[in-house]
Design a protein around this nucleic acid. Sequence first.
DNA 1: TTTATATTGTTAATGATTCTCAATATAAAG
DNA 2: CTTTATATTGAGAATCATTAACAATATAAA
Lengths: 152, 152
Amino acid sequence: MEVYEDIFAKFLAKKGLKLTQPRRYILEEVFEMHTHFNVEELYDRIRSKTSKISMATVYRTIPLLLEAGLIQRADRSEGRERYEHILGHPKHIHWVCKNCGALWETDFNSLYPALIKRAQDLKFKPDDIELTVKGICWKCNTNDNENQSDEK
Amino acid sequence: MEVYEDIFAKFLAKKGLKLTQPRRYILEEVFEMHTHFNVEELYDRIRSKTSKISMATVYRTIPLLLEAGLIQRADRSEGRERYEHILGHPKHIHWVCKNCGALWETDFNSLYPALIKRAQDLKFKPDDIELTVKGICWKCNTNDNENQSDEK
DNA sequence: TTTATATTGTTAATGATTCTCAATATAAAG
DNA sequence: CTTTATATTGAGAATCATTAACAATATAAA
Ligand SMILES: [Mn+2]
Ligand SMILES: [Mn+2]
Ligand SMILES: [Zn+2]
Ligand SMILES: [Zn+2]
């Protein structure tokens, strides 16, 4: 039994809920995917393996996974919420290229303790940290030679 | 003429667009508000002063203000996108209490140069930085005496 | 089995955002 | 002051992601 399955089972049990087959399918798929995903993508991937799942159940399970700390909101594109699993994915910074849409992830490193300290000063008990930097990636930066002068 | 008006007018002109009355109302209201706002709140506030505005125009103007760098996406609550104006509001960290919903803002201070340096290492040209920390604020932390022991 | 409760899928409802389109404003040109 | 070409607007319809309702079904304990 995978770690995340154990965590989810215990989380559910504590709430008087059950780890059913549909919930298991969702959980499995969430941890087989290693990218940010939205609900529809998740549903489609599960659906390609079994038909014993419905969109509604996926939507209903997302908040449970969030509350269990197994996934987190990652970003939002074209109106759709996106998520990513957490276990094995320590907190990281998201770098999003405004030009090509590419996504990079890097460690917080020294920024993390700095933030924690800041939180302590504010007597704030941090839980989720979301740091996203949007800009132009190195690839798009070298390809585009049209940002040299200002205007005209 | 306010600075932001000047900026917006120039931005629009460069795109062959005009600074019309409805756009002016929106711009004014955006800079009279000093909190995060969603489109409906913005619309309602303008509406309380004049009826010469429609929801559609507000929705259409938001992307223009974003592109002009006059507002930025701040957060999202209950499915609604929220914004805040930028001029006079330097980049800041958002601290959101998961319990009472309160929002704090603090300066980036030393975190900012650290992030910029990190960007340089990645050859990434940063544009927007969004740092939100969710957790429990000091008020909720002291009021709640139910988080002492773990369970049972 | 029986029973009480949680879960599911289907389908309808909701609600924010976007689109359509005809009417109107705007600014330049004559 | 007209004419003209283009941009803008408001009203309402259309979209589309997410939620809610509800009856049928699964689950686990008694
Ligand atoms: Mn990520
Ligand atoms: Mn803010
Ligand atoms: Zn790029
Ligand atoms: Zn609080």
